[in-house]
């Protein structure tokens, strides 16, 4: 079997070029293994070969990110490797960002599997842990041997497309993905064991650490509604009858934008809900109950509001991931602003 080809990325310091004074070193490709790469090569043994080492100064990379990235991607492409290894960067901040950025770019743009290694508090961790595997290291090069051992082991698994086990088993930093598995005991049993430990004040491990929520403070109140253009956005699933965009009843992957310029009142002839998380009877009979088009039309006529925007936006909030909801909201907000909408009524169910 032919050896796998590996390209290794390191900074000017580990290449032996110099310290901070050489941090503006331009990207350079060197044949074979250099510096820590020699230890990597020894660990890879006969299974993989470091065909090239790319060296770049930390300042150069961080201050000329696009240029550095583009140059290095070109160098990596020429080697057509099977694996790209960056660092380890330990607690060196700029080196960590460079390793994370180039490794995730190589993976995304060239489709080459990539990994790096760094210390938990390295700023590169939060930026790149979701895109690539980062082996957890201590905060200095004292940990080099150990880091290389784990990086090589994970690298070989990636090369052979073997199953990647848990962060604890492989030694990589948690990437922020929740994945199902079958535990040894059923949930009720696990809960009671956990409660007994908690009551005894013994240490216990929660199966889910509570997230920190981002709370949004509302804008100041609008003083004169009679001059205000208002739009409706809902997670209550109201759609034109027949649900033309097939918005899912739960776990929505999309939202719809629907014209209401011709409607003074929504009825069961023209609108309904796609939402699967509540009793739909009353929303299907009269969708104004979820998005108050009839009342807003009256208020428009009476001059109490400036105007109702001609479109409303709808999705189903039921089981829809926060990530999807955030992405919908960003697009909707952009569209609202470009249509000079000044206020939004958000309805949920």
């Amino acid at each position: 079997m032919a050896k796998f080809k590996v390209v290794h990325y390191i900074n000017q310091f580990y290449a032996g070029i110099g310290g901070e004074e050489k941090a503006d070193h331009m990207p350079e490709a060197i044949k074979g293994a250099v510096g820590p790469g020699l230890a990597f090569q020894a660990a890879f043994g006969e299974q993989a070969e470091i065909v090239a080492t790319i060296v770049c100064g930390d300042s150069f990379y961080n201050e000329n990110m696009e240029k550095a990235r583009e140059t290095i991607l070109g160098m990596v492409k020429q080697c057509s490797p099977d694996l790209f290894v960056a660092g380890p960067a330990f607690n060196a901040g700029r080196y960590g960002v460079a390793c994370g950025d180039i490794a995730s770019s190589v993976q995304n743009s060239l489709g080459v599997k990539a990994l790096s290694g760094m210390y938990l508090e390295n700023p590169g961790v939060d930026l790149y842990k979701k895109s690539i595997y980062l082996i957890e290291t201590k905060n200095s090069a004292v940990d080099m041997r150990n880091a290389i051992k784990k990086m090589v082991s994970l690298g070989l698994k990636l090369l052979k497309s073997e199953e990647i086990l848990t962060p604890q088993e492989e030694g990589y930093l948690k990437r922020g993905f929740r994945k199902n598995y079958f535990a040894d005991k059923r949930g009720s049993h696990r809960a009671i064991d956990m409660l007994i430990q908690k009551m005894k004040k013994d240490p216990f491990t929660t199966e889910f650490a509570m997230p920190t929520f981002d709370r949004v403070n509302p804008n100041p109140a609008i003083k004169d509604m009679s001059q205000t253009k208002i739009a409706i956005v809902t997670s209550g699933g109201i759609v034109p009858k027949g649900n033309p965009d097939h918005i899912e009843s739960s776990s929505a992957s999309k939202y719809g934008k629907y014209d209401i310029s011709k409607f003074r009142d929504l009825t069961d002839q023209d609108h309904e809900t796609a939402h699967g998380g509540y009793d739909p009877t009353f929303a299907n009979l009269d969708s104004d109950r979820v998005i108050p088009v009839d009342v807003l039309r009256d208020m428009e006529k009476e001059g109490r509001i400036g105007e109702l925007f001609n479109f409303f936006y709808a999705t189903t909030g039921n089981g829809t991931s926060v990530a999807n909801a955030k992405a919908f909201a960003a697009e909707i907000a952009k569209d609202l602003i470009s249509n000079d909408v000044q206020a939004v009524i958000l309805t949920s169910t």
Partner: peptide, 23 residues
């Protein structure tokens, strides 16, 4: 409900007092 990729925030409400969770 962490999304199909498991990358999203899984619960609609949270509190630091809920420090012992079985899922």
């Amino acid at each position: 409900y962490a999304g199909r990729d498991g990358a999203s925030q899984p619960l609609a409400d949270a509190d630091e007092k809920a420090n012992a969770v079985v899922t």
